[in-house]
Nucleic acid binder design. Structure first.
Length: 273
DNA sequence: AAGAGGCCCTGATAGC
DNA sequence: TGCTATCAGGGCCTCT
């Protein structure tokens, strides 16, 4: 579900609940121990029980909760949500995990598709191995991009989704970034000019920053549990706009949808070359 | 090594 | 109305 801006907004929202608090325990719910992926429930609790939370931050699409002896990392995948406490209207069958804090507050992990995972890492080497630079990192620059594309022959859209290339971009923002850059999502990276690469780098930062400022996008499942919804879905230029008129001034073409890299991709054939 | 495709899951919606 | 097919914002794994 959520991409970088949505994960950032979840982190911002939960930081006050978590920071400087002590973890009492973490339970898996509805028999779904798989949610812990790398650890058995016992092992995980050995690592995190009684630990103080010293930092809450984001790396790619992971929510990272630092404790003294390691990092609790939460990935929401497609439909994961965090929420403080349990509402009357909740379908508890969708709960996969529960973080109990010593101050008695309960943070629920709600995830009807059950793709979301909670990991514990002693250090961040695994995460750094899996993930490329953050889009805002100065290392995400022309030299890096050109070096990365060397010997590769896939379309640019697939690379924007590749977390080893750059971390945090997902299917919505990939389409939006390429539209703003006027680059066709099918274009092979081997034929991209330096100027085009530069545009992609700059527009990635631009789109993501704007989305963060709007609190992310609220579509389908994604809602900030505080009730404050993101507003970037109103800014979509191409995502889910199939058949609608291109939003570029003077262009009268219609937005097309095409499956690229196994995912729906939206673009304007006339504006994106 | 790089790229294509399957798979994990459930629910909403479209089409018949 | 009710069934079935398709699709959904992710990422890992396997095979070629």
């Amino acid at each position: 579900m959520p991409e970088l801006p949505e994960v950032q907004s979840v982190v911002n929202h939960f930081k006050p609940y978590l920071l400087n608090q002590f973890i009492h325990s973490i339970d898996y719910l509805n028999n779904y121990e798989k949610v812990f992926e790398t650890h058995s429930s016992n092992d995980l609790n050995k690592h995190v029980a009684n630990q103080k939370i010293s930092k809450v931050w984001r790396r790619g699409k992971y929510i990272v909760i630092d404790v003294s002896n390691g990092h609790l990392c939460i990935h929401l995948r497609m439909t994961g949500q965090l929420q403080v406490g349990c509402n009357k209207t909740d379908n508890t069958n969708h709960f996969t995990a529960l973080i109990n804090l010593k101050n008695k507050s309960k943070i629920y992990f709600k995830d009807y598709r059950k793709f979301g995972r909670i990991y514990f890492f002693k250090d961040l080497s695994i995460l750094n191995y899996r993930l490329g630079p953050e889009p805002f990192d100065p290392n995400f620059n022309l030299t890096y991009v050109f070096e990365f594309f060397k010997g590769k022959n896939k379309d640019i859209k697939s690379f924007l989704l590749d977390q080893k290339f750059v971390s945090g971009i997902g299917n919505i923002y990939a389409s939006e970034i390429l539209f703003l850059s006027k680059i066709n999502p099918c274009k092979k990276v081997s034929v991209l000019s330096k100027k085009e690469c530069q545009k992609i780098i700059l527009n990635s930062k631009k789109i993501l920053l704007k989305a963060i400022a709007k609190g992310g996008s609220s579509i389908r499942d994604f809602k900030d549990t505080s009730g404050s919804k993101g507003g970037f879905q109103n800014e979509f230029k191409v995502y889910q706009q199939e058949g609608k008129k291109c939003k570029n001034l003077g262009c009268f073409d219609l937005i097309k949808k095409k499956i690229i890299g196994n995912r729906s991709t939206f673009f304007c054939d006339s504006c994106q070359k």
